[in-house]
Design a protein around this nucleic acid. Structure first.
Lengths: 188, 188
DNA sequence: ATCGTAATATGATTTCAATCATATGTTGCC
DNA sequence: GGCAACATATGATTGAAATCATATTACGAT
């Protein structure tokens, strides 16, 4: 694995946070303390609409961070709600800002951010493809099929049924290989 | 406007690039020279599938940069094709890497990257909403309606017809105001 | 003024993915 | 071995958005 930028942050700046399902880690408008790393569990970032409806901005999975932009902001712009209990770590915003003076941290951060932006752009292009068959093909080219077809379908924002059908069609048309049940890949 | 990180790069590292429609700025597999800023025109980043079909990874508009991750990579991972003639500037990868030693650049880069990641995450959540009405409402809450409805619809990955219909429905249900033709906004 | 172009708007039809239903294969567990 | 849970797979039905068609309105250019 590539260097994690947060390895360059002194451990004194890391605050373990615990919470139960439904707890709000921070509220929209709260002054920012820092960003968060999800070790286990899941957290939703939500914005509240004018009629009180909650709109999910982001679903943070275990192993990912969230609220990175809060480091550069005075207040949080959304609520963070725990939807699956687990362990979070908060990283002090002052420590992150200070760490940018360390070129090693800065480059590690830059690398990670640039790659994430690239990956997200690609995902936006992929989910923008209408036809299930084309979307699945694009997903295969992008290497998104690691693990089960169900996971792959979820990444593509397609039902798994539509994904199976598209895969079958691609195999019939000779564009995809299906050497055995559940295994699909492009021709070499 | 917030500080543009590339303002911290010495102008000696900026190379103007020109090209005609259809020209390829770089090819997949080429050694990386650096990242690019689109001043005018449009560039598509494309990956070639096994059957030769070209899959668009990203559409770079005027005023945006692309291939940022190439700074941390040895080779380009896609083709960059000019789809609308204009002016590009290439920023030397060595200069960008060197600039990370400047905390002011590093923080400006970090801020911009964090905000872009946040915005892209939000877009991924929004385009993942199936019902046109809900998607349009989410787009309004996110403040995506600046400019024409046609642009708004394109951002939401919806046909403009579906967008107009959803807006009408939201107005009928009293969730959105339509003070005059072409003007839609949330209640204050 | 009027011509052309683009945005706004809405109705009619078609398409295609979601959903529902169902069956089989696979895996881990007691 | 038998059972539960889940992945794989496919058929049938439904629903919602894309597409096609058509006006109207707005706006700039000539």
């Amino acid at each position: 694995m590539l260097p994690n930028p947060y390895d360059y942050i002194p451990s004194s700046a890391l605050r373990p946070i615990s919470g139960a399902v439904g707890d709000t880690v921070f509220h929209q408008g709260d002054p920012t303390h820092g960003l968060y790393v999800v070790q286990t569990g899941r957290v939703h970032l939500e914005r509240v609409g004018p009629d009180g409806e909650r709109f999910i901005i982001h679903r943070a999975q275990a192993g990912t961070s969230f609220a990175e932009a809060s480091v550069f902001s005075e207040v949080y712009h959304c609520d963070a709600v725990i939807v699956e209990a687990g362990a979070l770590i908060r990283i002090d915003k002052a420590s992150v800002l200070a760490a940018f003076a360390d070129p090693a941290f800065a480059r590690a951060y830059g690398r990670q951010a640039a790659q994430q932006i690239q990956a997200q752009r690609q995902m936006l292009e992929i989910v923008g493809i209408r036809r299930a068959e084309d979307r699945v093909m694009a997903g295969l080219i992008a290497g998104l099929l690691e693990g089960s077809i169900v996971e792959f379908a979820a990444r593509l924002q397609l039902s798994h049924e539509a994904t199976y059908r598209a895969l079958r069609k691609l195999v019939q048309d000779g564009r995809v290989m299906n050497p055995s049940r559940g295994i699909y890949h492009l021709h070499p």
